[in-house]
Write a protein that binds this DNA or RNA. Structure first.
Lengths: 218, 218, 218, 218
DNA sequence: CATGAATGAGGTTTCATTCAT
DNA sequence: CATGAATGAAACCTCATTCAT
């Protein structure tokens, strides 16, 4: 309320920023430790507030967890859908843009904690898993399927089950993001993520070509 | 393990099986819930013993966790190494055999909990992560690298960074095993793992061919 | 209390009413929930102010509690004492007037919360209990004793320990006020308080007659 | 289980006694402090166990509270019902026996905490209140009503609404039990409970006589 | 060996109280 | 004066761990 006054009292301004600060701190700790092992004390401290303050913004630990999951990914998906809706260009370029978009999210060390979290905790939070599946997985697949459909129509992509192809396309990206926040520490330098993804995209795009055009690839 | 003495009294035989039963139960519960959320009560009940008995075999929860990780994968790796050491045949067939071997492990709903566990808990157990990286990841990569080396030498595989190619080869398999024990419940039927892996292997093998032989692919 | 200045600005009048509004809200919540379970948040909301405001008027929760107890009953006692001081009439009528006066207080759903509160919380607030005993119980008993004394002197009441008779006289009234705010909800309609008190007073007055005049009762 | 062996291990014997010990300790603390203010720490310490042990026997504080209420009164009611079922004697003597029975319970400093508790906490535990009303209040009233019915049939009691008469009969007893655990401390010695109850019963029985026989009373 | 009752440290959650605005 | 965001002590509750039987 009344956020158009540039001279808002500092307290009030804090209040507006608190949820984001808390979500950021919570994402960090949840991703590092997992849901159960994450202590609200740590989250609060990392957000620069006391333990009790967390409960002013989120009813309990679970609600905070859900909020972390729900707010971190949706904007990016919406952006992807918007892009696809207005761009009618070359499917191959679109597909590469889709990869780039996914990678902007999954490659961000901050956001890459989310998929890891969801996978690690799906068993304990079936509702969260269902929400994520519906709001992220299905919508992400729909994006892929639409581009693939356009490519097949123009004869630049081979046919195939879009769900399966999508999984094939994304699993290395997802894997890399999980890897980085788990064994990445031990494996430092072994593989540079950007190069890895680049290699995968090349390989995948080549595999997606119709048989006839395969010979012309590098 | 020591099952070659058929005349042992039932009680003693029971005792010899306890560790394996405990590890199996622990793997189940750890994989379902994650380390922190797993209760020793549940593990004990699932193994058919009382809570106190667990401590007769493993000093504490952490030791049990380490034992689960350490005993579940090593035999399979050793088998792979033995196979490779004696087989000098067609690299392409060997590579497909390697995929099949990996899939025998990662496709097993029982064992597929392990990678998920390691990734989810690496942050909380750096030593376990380091152990796993050294004893599983590096050795697995070495298997791949050796086959790749032979294939390049014979001109049937294109060159490339073997670590990167190995990651590329395995990430979909690892991903599928993680997926199945997380969002798989919501995603039931969307993708059949075996088909998915088969498609990936085909695609990967095609991508691995030298450019010249690509045209002969299906 | 200071309502005799009709031209005060509204704000100032508001302020003058605050303590009474707070006490009323506090009485409600304390009576409903008990001292510990009553939240200052609820009291503040019911009084239409913010939580912080409560502390402008009362140093802490305990002080508010004491104020509730102390201000709610004293005026009524004083009124009873004044009445008795000026009225020299028929002791039987006075006794019935005393019952009526008690019932005006104890029958008021608002005020009936007080005795319940005092009894429920006496263990946690010995000083409050002592204050209540001295300022309410003892003075109430003195009223009864004085009327009884006059009646005995005129030969219309039988003799007896006034403290005991007073307890006997009042316990059903007190009980009904406690009952109504506790099990009254389950017991709705079973007994109508006014009828109950009327029956008790009749029975008590009959029991208070000297033996000789008993036969003339209805 | 297997409690017929006199040489049971001490641990096992403790296990059998724990619930009763816990209920006794809990009744004490709940009655002294009220539900909210009672700390499980105190209850545990008074029962001679640690905090965690309470939760081995009762799922949570509320369950313990319910168990206290439910187990403390029922046996006495059942005893009263049994007595009434087999005794066909003088209704006046039966009524005095009923008073004596109630007083055995309500006069016991231990058990007298129960009614106080129920009344103080009814607002916070509607289900407990309903249970108590159904299992204690209604059954208690039925006992009274049956004796009253017999007395009216024989012409030794005057007619009247039994529910109202029962309330009238019991309210001083209930009040005394509440009083003793609340303001009784301040009021020490003012009134001796046994004398008070005796006086009440005499007065009540006299009030219960039909008008004709009133003159023969002492 | 095996049990399971008991423990108590540690986590989540509540709420009276403070204080900058 | 009034607010309500922030605090942190204290409560409930969980569960790994111990140990008498």
């Amino acid at each position: 309320m009344n956020t158009d006054a540039p001279s808002l009292p500092a307290r009030r301004r804090r209040k507006a920023e608190r949820p984001a600060e808390l979500l950021a701190a919570a994402l960090e700790v949840f991703a590092e430790r997992g849901y159960s092992a994450a202590r609200l004390d740590d989250i609060a401290r990392r957000a620069g507030v006391s333990k009790g303050t967390v409960f002013l913004y989120y009813a309990n630990k679970q609600a905070l967890f859900r909020a972390v999951i729900e707010t971190a990914v949706l904007p990016h998906l919406a952006a992807g859908e918007a892009l696809l809706a207005q761009d009618e260009g070359d499917p191959e370029a679109l597909m590469r843009a889709l990869f780039a978009g996914y990678w902007r999210v999954l490659g961000d060390p901050q956001l890459s904690g989310i998929p890891k979290l969801v996978m690690a905790e799906a068993g304990n939070f079936p509702e969260v898993a269902a929400y994520y599946h519906e709001q992220v997985v299905m919508r992400g697949r729909a994006l892929f399927a639409e581009i693939h459909r356009r490519g097949v129509a123009r004869g630049v992509f081979r046919e195939g089950d879009p769900a399966l192809l999508c999984q094939l396309a994304l699993s290395p990206l997802l894997f890399v993001c999980v890897w980085r926040s788990s064994l990445g520490g031990c494996d430092a330098g072994a593989i540079e993520p950007d190069r890895f993804v680049e290699a995968h995209v090349d390989m995948f795009m080549r595999g997606l070509m119709p048989a006839a055009s395969a010979r012309s690839s590098s």
